[in-house]
Design a protein around this nucleic acid. Structure first.
Lengths: 219, 219
DNA sequence: CTTGCTACTCACCGGCTGGTGACAGATTGG
DNA sequence: CCAATCTGTCACCAGCCGGTGAGTAGCAAG
């Protein structure tokens, strides 16, 4: 059966595209990493594998093993950026607004986080991955992200004193959970629990509801 | 290995395991369906496939094609139960409590939903599936579940008038999103955004925070 | 018994997966 | 100059996947 396995070679069928494939490890590493990110963002973690990444990067999968030690190392390399996600995506200053109270701050942070997540497909996929897979690599991703988020909240809080008698950690966990799930639902189905989330107007309504919730707990 | 072509029939060699494999279509259909549910609940949607289900049901995959028309039909059969999930899992009566206001009702419903989701691994997997996959079958599952949830809220609301000036659909979407994501996070990692969710005491704190949020918007 | 239907099993296919060992070409050092 | 090393390519493996065609066991009616 495998005897008649005439291997058809296809030698660079595009002569017009010189594909100046220079021998450069750093470049290749970067190509692999960005291909992995792009793939994860566009296709999700379902079809995320060695072969797919190698195909996307236009190189042999062997190089992924050599340079990253396999998929796990590659995921870890992706996760390294996670720590600085909030910092890169969300302005650290308060936009010139006067955030006098904890409620002011949390309202603003919640809206910033919602917008940032909405604009970042890769991060959405990772969040979805976190609640769908309890493998070691994903758990590490999750922890890094969680820590970064909590640290961001802490940093932004500054010297503001949270309201007395409220378990802010628990309440904030609910608030940011709500944002994450809502954005994820919208990304796959343009709606969430009967709430349409397609047009800018829809999102405007969502933002108003979010503000109302935050103001409800934090005044 | 294949040379010894003597197909060793093992006609119930295990007297302890009766394996009463009667020829009964209805039984087999049920076995397939429950195997699929069990598999989905325990392993998640990642390794959910024809071969795995057939293996779990102890029958040939061909029967899945015949009886359900493939995996899609099987998933649809699973989804059929979804419409009655809230009805089966959550008591329709108000537990003898006096729910005088919309806030009373929503607080109770939120807590009921949280407990029900926490107790149902299959439902958790399906929710995770919904935010990770936009295939047609999953979209159908999602719509059925969403409709059931909204209908349940509507039914439970009864003649209670929601507060004026509040977009209850949007607010409720956030509240139930929060519950879903929190429970999902807890199921894979025993925590969510820095909030530990392992011991009953942890969940007690989460419940208090949830009540506070609901009361904050709905009074 | 034979015929015919139903419930069920099996063998096989192409295709893709993760993973490995061997090899070719370029670069560098002695 | 040759030799070692680095970068990249390829062929090949076992294993699982979804899917299908063909065949087998049991049962009931004629």
């Amino acid at each position: 059966m495998p005897s008649a396995n005439a291997v058809v070679r296809k030698p660079a069928e595009t002569p017009d595209a010189p594909e100046k494939r220079v021998r450069n490890r750093a470049n290749t590493e970067q190509a692999i990493l960005s291909a992995a990110k792009r793939l994860l963002a566009e296709e999700g973690f379902q079809n995320f594998g060695i072969n797919a990444v190698a195909r996307g990067a236009g190189c042999d999968k062997q190089l992924i093993y050599r340079y990253y030690g396999g998929l796990d190392g590659l995921v870890e390399a992706i996760g390294t950026d996670l720590g600085s996600w909030v910092k890169d995506r969300i302005p650290d200053d308060t936009g010139g607004m006067f955030l006098l109270t904890y409620g002011d701050l949390m309202e603003r942070l919640a809206l910033l986080f919602l917008e940032a997540l909405r604009a970042d497909p890769l991060m959405r996929r990772i969040v979805a991955w976190e609640v769908s897979d309890n493998s070691e690599q994903v758990r590490r991703l999750s922890e890094a992200r969680s820590k970064a988020l909590v640290g961001w909240l802490e940093r932004m809080r500054g010297s503001l004193t949270p309201p007395k008698g409220i378990d802010t950690v628990a309440v904030n966990a609910f608030i940011f959970s709500a944002i994450q799930h809502l954005v994820l639902s919208a990304a796959v189905g343009d709606q969430c629990a009967g709430l349409a989330l397609k047009t800018p107007k829809d999102w405007e309504k969502a933002a108003i509801a979010l503000k109302r919730i935050v103001r409800g707990v934090y005044g």
